[in-house]
């Protein structure tokens, strides 16, 4: 009897704890790509790390580090570099955050042969991981005056043609 009660308790307990096994945030890359990707921390480590300095709301400069966005997109087979011409110039990247916020970049804004401005997917600020409410991944747009496209808590990126 006692044993059954114990087992019942354990079963119940295991149910209640299920929702609290935490997961790690990843980023899904989909749409007009040749290889849909799920980006996680380990995947990002394979790329060269780049830093971008940006002023935050506190008015102070902060050093963000991460990976050039176009490098990640190339890994998914997005038409960048020599392929970015003709109708491919009507493609855009839609970035979505966990709070539902969305921003877009024209592919040409991300391409090195069009611009030197760096747009990175950052996972660190001043050498430390981003705060929970900002991270784990945030887009940092070099020199853009408004921070509105420095989208926090990125969860998905999709490449689309304009209709």
């Amino acid at each position: 009897m006692k044993k059954q009660f114990l087992i019942a308790c354990m079963v119940l307990l295991s149910f209640t704890t299920i929702p609290f096994i935490s997961q790690a945030q990843t980023i899904k890359i989909s749409g007009e790509v040749s290889t849909p990707l799920t980006v996680d921390a380990a995947y990002l480590q394979k790329f060269t790390q780049t830093t971008v300095v940006r002023k935050d709301r506190d008015g102070k400069d902060h050093t963000y580090s991460g990976v050039i966005l176009s490098e990640i997109l190339k890994g998914a087979g997005v038409t960048l570099g020599p392929e970015l011409k003709g109708e491919n110039l009507t493609k855009y990247l839609l970035v979505e955050a966990s709070d539902g916020y969305q921003v877009i970049f024209a592919l040409a804004e991300l391409d090195k042969s069009f611009t030197d401005r760096a747009i990175i997917l950052a996972d660190k600020v001043d050498g430390a991981p981003l705060a929970t409410a900002d991270g784990p991944y945030r887009i940092i747009v070099q020199d853009e005056k408004k921070p509105a496209r420095c989208i926090k808590q990125v969860t998905a990126m999709q490449v689309h043609f304009v209709k």
Binding site: P19, S98, D99, T132, A133
Partner: peptide, 13 residues
């Protein structure tokens, strides 16, 4: 939303 995603960043969201 944490109940759905199991992400700590979604707690109380």
């Amino acid at each position: 939303m944490e109940i759905l995603t199991r992400l700590p960043a979604d707690r109380g969201r």
